[in-house]
């Protein structure tokens, strides 16, 4: 049985279009999409949340980036082929059909090329910045944290990027920890080797007990604060401190919320109380004999 219409059979030509290719391409891309969507779903399930840091780490992985690119191209190709069929079947106005057909083709093509350019610029070709931190500050830093960059020679300009990774090793000669960050820009004024001011936005910590920095007495034997006990009495207390931020220091243990600490002149009280304690010990020593 011939599937050709009588005129085509008389002329000896087949179909003027590439229907079989379209049919196969639609199904091949469908099979690819089934596999890739299953991969994406299981990846999302195993990801550490869907926030910025986790998403960024996910797409920065080269294997994931490659698979995601294939998924994107396959999805847009499949969409283009499907929209073409819908337009052919349901749009019965020939000029409109042709316009929509070309819009679909151009749209899919433009989206693919635009997306791949953005993806490459953001993930593969981000402007790299190396930040040197004191080794003690390294514990604050985590992948995905927001970083604001300011270039002294370009006043008023800010770039926003991300912490991508930190080195496992402290630089031996500078005693600093290199932190690698990057941001997306096409600003031609930026040059490699420029010095920039950076501001890393570490995640905020809730319910932190903090004291003013000047209240802390740092000694070789440990950190102390002087607690006011009322009625002009003071007591030096050993504390364990955490991180510093601005003019404040986190206190992990030693004092409780609501206690008053001395922020000025505490060195005098501390040394005075050490003397008093020594005298008391001496007195007790006398009594025992």
């Amino acid at each position: 049985m011939s599937m050709l219409n009588p005129l085509a059979r008389a002329r000896g030509h087949g179909s003027a279009k590439d229907g079989v290719h379209h049919w196969y391409a639609q199904r091949a891309s469908a099979l690819l999409l089934i596999a890739l969507l299953a991969w994406l779903l299981f990846s999302a399930l195993s990801m550490d949340g869907l926030g910025y840091a986790a998403s960024r780490a996910f797409i920065a992985n080269p294997v994931n980036a490659a698979l995601l690119s294939v998924l994107l191209v396959a999805a847009l190709y499949h969409a283009m082929l499907g929209l073409q069929v819908v337009i052919e079947d349901y749009v019965h106005n020939r000029p409109l059909e042709i316009v929509l057909y070309f819009l679909t083709r151009a749209g899919a093509w433009e989206l693919v090329s635009w997306a791949s350019r953005m993806f490459a610029a953001g993930v593969l070709m981000a402007t790299p910045v190396i930040i040197s931190l004191f080794e003690g500050q390294g514990a604050w830093i985590d992948r995905g944290q927001r970083v604001v960059f300011r270039v002294p020679t370009m006043p008023g300009t800010e770039f926003v990027g991300t912490v991508d990774r930190t080195d496992r090793e402290i630089n031996f000669s500078t005693r600093t920890l290199p932190v690698y960050a990057g941001f997306f820009t096409s600003d031609p004024r930026l040059r490699y080797g420029m010095l920039v001011e950076t501001e890393i936005h570490v995640s905020a910590r809730e319910n932190v007990l903090r004291i003013p920095r000047e209240a802390l007495i740092r000694t070789g034997a440990g950190d102390r604060v002087v607690v006011a006990q009322g009625d002009g009495r003071f007591q030096p207390v050993t504390v364990v401190v955490g991180i510093e931020s601005g003019d404040y220091i986190e206190v992990l243990s030693g004092i409780e919320e609501g206690q008053e600490v001395v922020v000025s002149g505490q060195f005098l009280i501390d040394s005075e109380s050490s003397l008093t304690a020594s005298f008391r010990r001496m007195e007790q020593g006398d009594g025992d004999h």
Partner: peptide, 14 residues
Amino acid sequence: LWWIIATATGPDAF
């Protein structure tokens, strides 16, 4: 596309 490009661009876009 928006999700991927925003993730690639930076924290503000995301």
